[in-house]
Design a protein around this nucleic acid. Sequence first.
DNA 1: TTCATACTTCGATGGTAATCGAAGTATGAT
DNA 2: ATCATACTTCGATTACCATCGAAGTATGAA
Lengths: 227, 227
Amino acid sequence: MKEGPDIALIGSLIGDPARANMLTALMGGQALTPTELAAQAGITLQTASSHLAKLEAGGLLTQRKQGRHRYYALSEDEVGLMLESLMGFAAGRGLTRSRPGPKDPALRRARVCYNHLAGDYGVRMLDSLIAARHIEITGEDDLALTDAGRVRVESLGIDYAALRKSRRPICRTCLDWSERRSHLAGSLGEALLTLFIDKDWAKREKNSRAVRFTAAGEKVFLELFPR
Amino acid sequence: MKEGPDIALIGSLIGDPARANMLTALMGGQALTPTELAAQAGITLQTASSHLAKLEAGGLLTQRKQGRHRYYALSEDEVGLMLESLMGFAAGRGLTRSRPGPKDPALRRARVCYNHLAGDYGVRMLDSLIAARHIEITGEDDLALTDAGRVRVESLGIDYAALRKSRRPICRTCLDWSERRSHLAGSLGEALLTLFIDKDWAKREKNSRAVRFTAAGEKVFLELFPR
DNA sequence: TTCATACTTCGATGGTAATCGAAGTATGAT
DNA sequence: ATCATACTTCGATTACCATCGAAGTATGAA
């Protein structure tokens, strides 16, 4: 009767609307303070504080103190992947909180998925990298950077050696809820998004997961990652 | 603030212990009656009935009436995949309901994942099929049966034409919570498990997700799918 | 028909947890 | 020092919902 992992605990943590709102906000990738998260969830700071303690105890979030601020973020890539999978199911069921608004197309086009690029652009990037044989499919879910790929990302200005050092996987797939296909996660996925932002090719919109490409940035991106 | 799919609803459905127990029981793949599910969850029939109505309304379960019995089952493959992903995360956090008991090794070895084979044996089977080039990796998560693979499964007695007819994907990956690697889902995954049972190579244990191979069946299986 | 089984619906109860006001702690600014 | 900001903890309230007894419906058996 009682075998296997306890999904009820995780489910109940995600199951509260206020907490779900906070988690969704944190899928934007930026670490946020309790005050910001309270605003996102539409609750008071006291309530938010209590929720955040529970999410942290449940292992979904980590906390970083900085002066009188506390920054909360998803604790690891796994959490983002799990949430994205839940969103995929919910979206398939037509369970959207706000009816598809004007922002929706922007989200489907390019958005932040915890720390990497998702949406049409994210899927396109991975497809393009695979087609160019810069990324190789080595297993069912396993991706690897090829030698050519290493040269390629280094030429873009990414510090490949640094990526190798961390214990996190460099390449990883993440299922996209809007496209229902995979895009690139892992430390390389993160590094690429950071690169786009740093080079001013794209900007994160405030209080949204949407990523807006600049006119110049979009041109470069589409040339770098042809369909 | 409110963008993206509503994960709170799904989360809260999974978040109740009684419902989580029922869902876990249904991961065994067999359709079960409210009476059976109530027993699994340790609640009365009335309570179970109310839970089942909610799970059905939420799209997680479907119901089939047969005489005075009602059989509940997971509504689609997607649900099983989502639950398995939640279990993966929970297991990674060490959140097991019963401390690893004697049944645990059997579960890790071979178990039913909704309608296909999971655990060490499930992972081994997919690895072996890929190594033999009977299944091909065509995209990030996409698998395809090769021509040689089609011949192979037909020689085992699987009706390939029937698989093609259904709208479900034939091959599909599913992340294994115990092995943390992928195994084969989709209609072919289901057909293979059914085959093993039909040929008496393996039996489902009652009230458990565990799959027990017979001595003869294990021999055949290991030969069919070498490491 | 009559009885039994399987299940749902209704209604009442109780417990849990989300919520927020108020008070307490910690860090930083002036 | 004093004040302000950021956040937590405590306590009380409230609202929801899981639970089950009791009654109602449906199917099958005798």
